[in-house]
């Protein structure tokens, strides 16, 4: 039999993609890049589900991927609307400038 892959190899790939996305969320300060990283993480989670479904020859993994897809679409539309508003109100993409909710006891 030819050299083949097992389910754990696919899960390692999913973990690799997830960690790449996580590193992106942790290191980038631009909101657009953070949203891109979140997309990569959701995609990796979906890959893990599909791999699990393929291992047992069941459609449930693919069904879960569909729900992740719907969630990602809703999340990204609201997230990008928020990005537009933030840019119109603050003229910046830097998450560290958005500190209006911070408690400042010494002011006033």
């Amino acid at each position: 039999m030819m050299h083949s892959f097992n389910a754990h190899t696919v899960l390692v790939v999913a973990a690799l993609l997830f960690v790449l996305g996580l590193t992106g969320v942790l290191t980038r300060k631009n909101i657009i890049f953070m949203l891109i990283s979140v997309e990569v993480m959701l995609n990796a989670a979906g890959l893990a589900f599909v791999a699990a479904g393929a291992q047992w020859h069941q459609p449930d993994g693919q069904v879960m991927f569909l729900f992740i897809l719907a969630m990602a679409a809703a999340e990204i539309s609201v997230g990008l609307a928020l990005v537009l508003q933030i840019y119109h109100q603050h003229k910046t993409m830097d998450v560290e400038d958005l500190e209006e909710l911070r408690d400042r006891p010494n002011e006033n």
Binding site: F5, N6, A7, H8, V12, Q55
Partner: peptide, 24 residues
Amino acid sequence: LLLRGSKAPMLVSVVAPRNVSLSL
């Protein structure tokens, strides 16, 4: 952790869209 699992190769079989939609 993942590499400690079983080494049995995956038997890939196509799960058709029909089965997915029936389950969905």
